[in-house]
Amino acid sequence: MASQGTKRSYEQMETDGERQNATEIRASVGKMIGGIGRFYIQMCTELKLSDYEGRLIQNSLTIERMVLSAFDERRNKYLEEHPSAGKDPKKTGGPIYRRVNGKWMRELILYDKEEIRRIWRQANNGDDATAGLTHMMIWHSNLNDATYQRTRALVRTGMDPRMCSLMQGSTLPRRSGAAGAAVKGVGTMVMELVRMIKRGINDRNFWRGENGRKTRIAYERMCNILKGKFQTAAQKAMMDQVRESRNPGNAEFEDLTFLARSALILRGSVAHKSCLPACVYGPAVASGYDFEREGYSLVGIDPFRLLQNSQVYSLIRPNENPAHKSQLVWMACHSAAFEDLRVLSFIKGTKVLPRGKLSTRGVQIASNENMETMESSTLELRSRYWAIRTRSGGNTNQQRASAGQISIQPTFSVQRNLPFDRTTIMAAFNGNTEGRTSDMRTEIIRMMESARPEDVSFQGRGVFELSDEKAASPIVPSFDMSNEGSYFFGDNAEEYDN
């Protein structure tokens, strides 16, 4: 783990906690998980779902989305002020799938948001429990990260689609708070800032007046979040320049895209947490497990152990491969979309394939898809080993990566060399080191050039047997250095459309 220093740990961010010791953190995270579980059980009762239907990941996603929508204050306010045809701002819903006479049927349900809020609060001892809501947002974000390569979004903001390893959390809503900021990748933060800068260039009043003052505060806050992700002084200094700019424009845009590229080699610290679907927490609570009393951590053995003992089902389209669908969801559960496939294969105990080789589309089923041909199958979400999630980018030494994705962002704290394609990355730096950030740029390029592919990161860190909950005997895996390590390699994943 990167030293926490003055930073709060993510469990504290996750639970809005002030400084807590490890036991208190485990208890408050457990409380959050228990609340999600209780809410899910109650919703299944309301909807009269069978046990099997309640364990269907598509039903879980609909129920999670309903509660997130019920608590989305800004959108609710907007919907009330701008009524649109056929949208009731006070209601929320989605597809629920039921097994009827041996076939899967889709039923569109509609609930009062007020009623959903009441059920959620009741499951969370009367609190709004925003930490639990954020947790579900991060699960949705991790699922998107594993399912889609955001080529269009990258290109629109002047970045290269091969930089997708920097895009963790790119679909997280803005209201996801400190826990959300911690899991956002460098590219995601750059993209958010670039969008602001572009608006400022096109709209003279963007930075002016009372609204402009708020915009400015948001801009500086985002700059500080991004600065905190960088691990070298030169990158941090460049972020200070971007933040202090009187009138952010093209120079800042250039600096930010430069920094994003540099992060492929001088990786930023991005938190990883295993956020599971509500249909995993519900049955665990129903079986009598007391998360608050037992304590829970999002970055240790607990999620692995929970998945070892969970039964989750998914709808499967006619030509999809259930094992591939399982891999997709497994990666999402562990926030591992940008991790090295060699490491993932070792931990999972079966070969993890790149996205383009998977015969599976996303987990969600569109409303126009034919239910007649839908089957369902068990998702295999178990693992051979477990490993500690990392909050750091690993040290800054790398190795060759593949054509589709030119770097990785480690999820697990496991000893290995970190793949990246130096030639491709360095070719993108057209040696432009003039301007006010020239000395920093020169320094950053120097550090990137001296990074050695064969150097090892996370020295001495290994994986653990599932029986080793105290992480007492690390097993340090050895990897084939020459092997392909990137998930979005030469990829044809669908595009994420909101």
Rank of each mutant, 00 (worst) to 15 (best):
E369D: 12
F346W: 12
S345R: 09
R243I: 08
R416M: 06
D160E: 12
R156Y: 05
L154C: 09
F420Q: 02
Q58W: 09
R384G: 09
N309M: 13
L193T: 07
L341A: 02
R452I: 15
N432Q: 09
M426V: 08
C223Y: 10
T424L: 05
E24I: 14
R8V: 00
F479E: 02
F39R: 00
R342N: 04
Q399V: 12
S3C: 07
E11P: 01
L256W: 14
S60T: 14
N368P: 12
I406R: 00
L344V: 10
V414G: 01
A284W: 04
K357N: 09
I316V: 13
L298P: 11
L266E: 10
E375H: 09
W330H: 02
L358C: 07
V456A: 14
V29C: 15
V270D: 04
C44Y: 11
Q399K: 15
R384Q: 03
E443A: 05
E372R: 08
M1Y: 13
H334L: 10
T232A: 13
R174L: 05
Y78S: 05
C275H: 02
S60A: 03
G212H: 05
P83S: 14
V155S: 07
G288N: 10
D302E: 14
C275I: 08
E107Q: 13
T15F: 00
Q459L: 14
R26G: 07
R361G: 12
G268W: 11
P477E: 03
W104F: 14
G362V: 09
E494I: 04
K91E: 12
N321R: 13
K214P: 10
R422S: 12
R267D: 02
E114C: 11
E14V: 07
Q415S: 09
L47N: 07
R174Y: 01
N309C: 01
K348A: 15
K48V: 12
F464N: 07
E484W: 13
D497T: 00
E64Q: 10
L110A: 04
E80T: 10
K113F: 05
L49T: 01
R361Y: 03
N142I: 08
R199G: 13
T378Q: 09
R38Y: 06
I388V: 12
T424R: 04
V363P: 15
S377R: 09
E320G: 06
L315C: 03
M426I: 08
N368C: 14
A153F: 01
V242C: 14
S274M: 06
A27S: 08
I408G: 00
R389G: 08
A153H: 02
G200C: 08
Y313R: 08
R355T: 09
G300S: 15
I475S: 07
I475D: 02
Y313F: 13
P477C: 04
K229P: 00
L341P: 09
F253S: 13
R452P: 05
G362P: 07
N125H: 01
E254A: 09
N21C: 10
A27M: 05
A471W: 06
R389E: 02
A129E: 07
Q241T: 05
Y111P: 00
G435F: 13
S407Y: 02
Y111E: 08
I475T: 12
L259I: 12
G404I: 03
G177F: 05
R156Q: 10
Y289C: 13
K273S: 03
S376G: 13
N142Q: 14
L108H: 15
P248A: 06
W104V: 02
R246K: 15
I33L: 11
M448D: 04
D290Q: 13
G282L: 03
T134F: 00
E115K: 09
Q20V: 12
S245K: 01
R118V: 15
A260M: 07
A472V: 07
V343P: 02
A260N: 03
V463A: 14
E369T: 10
M136K: 05
R152A: 03
K91R: 15
V312N: 11
N483G: 05
I41N: 09
T215E: 01
G300K: 14
N498C: 04
I225K: 09
S176H: 04
V190Q: 01
